[in-house]
């Protein structure tokens, strides 16, 4: 695969590492145990477009949110996770 890094341009996927779904939001410190469980362990795991974290470890070292169709690997967006 080739990932279009918003900072470095299109690069080969081996420059990146992967963390998975970017949608779950880290709960507040006082959130319930169930909320924390869901955040850390449960996944939608859709067969379709996923927003996911990629880390450009061998590039700009920025964490990115990439929208990718996990059936075809077609990438429709890639933005900085802090953007």
């Amino acid at each position: 695969m080739r990932i279009p890094c918003p900072h470095c341009g299109e690069r080969a996927s081996e420059e990146f590492s992967y963390l998975g779904a970017a949608d779950p939001v880290r709960p507040a410190a006082d959130a319930s145990a169930a909320e924390w469980h869901d955040y850390v362990y449960l996944r939608d795991n859709p067969a379709g477009v996923m927003r996911e974290f990629w880390h450009h470890v061998h590039g700009c070292r920025r964490w990115l949110v990439v929208a990718r169709d996990v059936r075809t690997h077609a990438i429709s967006a890639a933005v900085d996770a802090g953007a």
Binding site: D38, Y41, R43, D44, N45, P46
Partner: peptide, 18 residues
């Protein structure tokens, strides 16, 4: 590999990624 998709038919979310 399709466990999440099929479980979702019953409204379940699993601790699984494909």
């Amino acid at each position: 590999g399709n466990s999440s998709r099929v479980a979702a038919l019953a409204g379940l979310r699993l601790p699984i990624e494909s």
